[in-house]
Amino acid sequence: MFAQLLREDRVIIDLKAKDKEEVLQELLSVLNLKPEQEKIVLEQLKKREAIGSTGVGRGVAIPHTRSVVVDDVQLVVGVSKGGIDFQSLDGKPVHLFFLLIAPPQDLGARYLITLGEIANVARKVVSTKEYLNFETSKELMEYLMKIYREA
């Protein structure tokens, strides 16, 4: 699933956002949702963050939610070279973001499968932080695909 969802145009190599809300907006922006859809998903992501940060620690966050306004599972990857305070479990800034959005009902539990695959990739990349070194979205995408295939 991860491999099917990972697309070059949905990989942001150098996030400009400075805080939590900005980064959620920046990640969402590449999905080209209608403004009312983007607003609904953003609110839902913020609600999810309010119950507990999806900053899972070691520089990684996996903001995620479900909403009927998207008709399929959507993945966006973003890297912040400077890091963003995401109120992570370990209190450290987040550099690597995996935004995952899915409809409430998705056939074949693709959302949970993808979430598991993201977690596997994240576990592999946190130690080296090599993901910070890439200059283009394509390079980062190919790196993540390589890690995914090895995971």
Binding site: K47, R48, R66, L112, G116, A122
Partner: peptide
Amino acid sequence: IALESLDAELEDFESEEYRNSINIT
């Protein structure tokens, strides 16, 4: 729409697969 999302997220939290995925450390 918000309620539907929250209900789906509550169901996710009941899944061990979900908890493991968001608890990588």
